[in-house]
């Protein structure tokens, strides 16, 4: 987060000196290559939160969930799937607009679930957008220190092996 804020400050400083090219993601410069608008990136965050609402659980990770999702989209996804992800996201935005939903985050939980159900039944790009976001949200949560130590039997240095213990 600090890096992002620092880069953001630089971008603001720079704006005073030069004419910046049309920058869609001033707030998220590290994901600029994805060509997503700021509100689209924030919608990804809202969808991830709705899909997996970890609430007050102390899920401490080096990066926020949104940063993880955007990093995986940017680095570990083919250009074709990036494009489809964006199409699915745009289609979802249109749907929300058609439904007169001003903002996904302000919907009540029932309406959010209804909107996500629409995504799951949408075209292949909408499904890809939903499944990828959901998968990365789950991955971020289930690889966290909180999850590995409180839900799973993770020990970084086990120091022993018992072949047959009673559950």
């Amino acid at each position: 987060m600090k890096r992002r804020q620092a880069l953001q400050s630089l971008a603001i400083l720079g704006a005073g000196l030069t004419i910046l090219p049309s920058c869609r993601t001033k707030k998220y410069p590290e994901y600029r290559a994805l060509g997503l608008k700021e509100d689209q990136i924030e919608l990804v965050d809202q969808v991830a939160t709705a899909v997996l609402p970890v609430g007050q659980l102390p899920v401490e990770t080096p990066e926020s969930r949104l940063d993880f999702i955007m990093t995986m989209l940017r680095d570990c996804t083919s250009p074709e799937d990036q494009s489809r992800y964006k199409n699915g996201l745009e289609a979802f935005q249109s749907y929300l607009k058609d439904q007169f939903h001003p903002s996904f985050s302000t919907l009540n939980q029932r309406d959010q679930m209804k909107a996500l159900a629409y995504l799951q039944e949408g075209d292949k790009d909408q499904q890809l957008f939903y499944e990828h976001t959901r998968r990365w949200a789950i991955q971020h949560f289930t690889t966290s220190s909180y999850y590995l130590t409180n839900v799973l039997d993770f020990h970084f240095v086990p120091g022993h092996f018992y072949g047959c213990v009673v559950i």
Partner: peptide, 23 residues
């Protein structure tokens, strides 16, 4: 491994992930 379902979404998904049904 612990039996953990990835089904569902919202609070239901969180509940599945955090409450394994045994092994």
């Amino acid at each position: 491994h612990k039996a953990i379902s990835h089904r569902g979404m919202g609070p239901e998904l969180l509940d599945h992930l955090t409450h394994p049904t045994g092994y």
